[in-house]
C-alpha cells in the first residue's frame, strides 16, 4: 500500500532538514563559543607557568588570531572529513570520548525511557479506567508532584534515601573504584545504573501517564466504545480491545518526541550521580573550556534528538493505518 514515491519524498525532505539543521546548529554554537570569554590557550596550559614567548607560540598554534569565519570553515571542513579534533581535558580524539560516553548514556537513557514508557502507559490506563476514583486521584497527584519536582532535587533525594540512609545502592560512578575494567561484573555495573535510571524515568512517567489517561478518557467516551458496550463488551476486556489499540500509537509517538527532554534530564542526573555519560562530559567540557569536545557533543545530541523526532514522524506517517490510507487515496 505504501508507494515508493512517498517514501523517497519523505527521506529526501528529512535529509534536507537534517543537513540544514546541522549547519545552523554548528554555526550558532560555534559563534556563541567564539564570542564567549573562553581562552583555548589558557584552557590548554591550565595551571602550568609559561613564559610570554611560549604563550605567543601556543596562540599561534591554536590560531587565536585567525579571523572567526576562517576558524569556522577550518573546523567545519574537518568535521565533514570526520575529524572532530582532540579533547583538551581527556587528551584523546573527541570522537573516542563521545563514543564511550554516549554508549554509557544510551544505556541509561534507553533503560529509563523503556521503563518510563511502560510504567507511564500502565498507570495512565489504570487512571483513565478508574477516572474520578481515589486511584485516579492518587495517580494524578503523583504525576503533578513529579512534574513539579526538579530533576537534580529528585536525584539528590533518591541518593540520600537509597544510598546514604539505606545503603542499598552505591553513591555514584558506573563501576566500583579501584577495580580494573576486566574485573567489573555485570552486577556491579547494573547496581550503579538503577538509581540514575530510576530518577530519569520517574520524571518521564508523569508526562506519559497524564497523556495516556487523557487519551483513554477520550476513547472511552467515544461513540465506538458506547456501541461496544451496547453489544455486551465491558470492563477490562473492553479497554484492552478498544482502548489500548487506540491509545498506544499516540502514546508511543509522544514517547519518541520526548528524546530532547530525556537528554536534558540525563545531563543533570549524570552530574548528581557522577555517572560517566555524555551529559557529564558536556558539563565538564563547558566548565573547563574544552571547545572541541563541547561542539562535538552538541552535534551528536542534535542527531540524537533529530532521530527521536524522525521516528515519531515515521510512526505518524507510515504506521497509523488511517493516515496511510488517506495518503493513498489522494
Amino acid at each position: 500500500m505504501l508507494n515508493n514515491g512517498k517514501i523517497a519524498g519523505f527521506i529526501g525532505k528529512k535529509t534536507l532538514r537534517l543537513v540544514s539543521l546541522l549547519i545552523v546548529v554548528c554555526f550558532a554554537s560555534f559563534m556563541l563559543i567564539q564570542s564567549s570569554p573562553i581562552d583555548p590557550v589558557r584552557a590548554y596550559i591550565g595551571e602550568m607557568p609559561v613564559t610570554a614567548e611560549h604563550k605567543a607560540k601556543l596562540e599561534e598554534y591554536w590560531g587565536v588570531n585567525t579571523p572567526p569565519q576562517e576558524k569556522f570553515l577550518n573546523w567545519a571542513g574537518d568535521i565533514v572529513k570526520g575529524d572532530f579534533g582532540t579533547s583538551l581535558i581527556y587528551r584523546t580524539p573527541v570522537i573516542d570520548v563521545i563514543k564511550e560516553r554516549f554508549t554509557a548514556s544510551l544505556v541509561l537513557m534507553g533503560v529509563s525511557w523503556l521503563f518510563a514508557g511502560i510504567l507511564g502507559f500502565v498507570l495512565g490506563i489504570v487512571a483513565g479506567m478508574k477516572q474520578g476514583t481515589w486511584v485516579d486521584k492518587a495517580i494524578k497527584t503523583y504525576c503533578y508532584a513529579l512534574a513539579a519536582a526538579p530533576t537534580f532535587w529528585l536525584a539528590l533525594v533518591l541518593l540520600m534515601v537509597f544510598s546514604v540512609y539505606l545503603g542499598w545502592f552505591p553513591i555514584g560512578l558506573s563501576v566500583p573504584i579501584g577495580v580494573t575494567a576486566d574485573n567489573v561484573t555485570f552486577f556491579d555495573w547494573f547496581k550503579r545504573l538503577i538509581l540514575p535510571a530510576l530518577t530519569l524515568s520517574l520524571l518521564d512517567v508523569a508526562k506519559i501517564t497524564m497523556f495516556t489517561r487523557e487519551k483513554l478518557i477520550e476513547v472511552l467516551s467515544s461513540d465506538y466504545v458506547l456501541f461496544a458496550k451496547a453489544r455486551g463488551e465491558k470492563g477490562l476486556d473492553l479497554v484492552l480491545r478498544h482502548g489500548i489499540r487506540n491509545v498506544a500509537l499516540p502514546a508511543i509517538t509522544l514517547q519518541f518526541l520526548g528524546f530532547s527532554e530525556l537528554f536534558g534530564g540525563t545531563v543533570l542526573v549524570e552530574q548528581v550521580f557522577s555517572y560517566p555519560g555524555i551529559g557529564q562530559a558536556a558539563v565538564a567540557a563547558g566548565l573547563r573550556s574544552d571547545v572541541p569536545l563541547l561542539l562535538g557533543i552538541v552535534i551528536f545530541s542534535t542527531l540524537f534528538v533529530f532521530f527521536g523526532n524522525l521516528i515519531a514522524d515515521i510512526i505518524y506517517e507510515f504506521v497509523d493505518p488511517r493516515i496511510r490510507q488517506q495518503e493513498a487515496s489522494i
Binding site: S222, Y224, F227, H242
Partner: peptide, 23 residues
C-alpha cells in the same frame, strides 16, 4: 440490561463513528 445487550437486544447505531477506527 448488561446481560441482555448484544445477545437479546441489539443496537444498530447511526454512523460509522460507532465502529472502532483501528479495528
Amino acid at each position: 440490561k448488561e446481560e441482555m445487550r448484544g445477545k437479546e437486544i441489539a443496537l444498530i447505531p447511526q454512523a460509522i463513528t460507532y465502529l472502532d477506527p483501528l479495528m
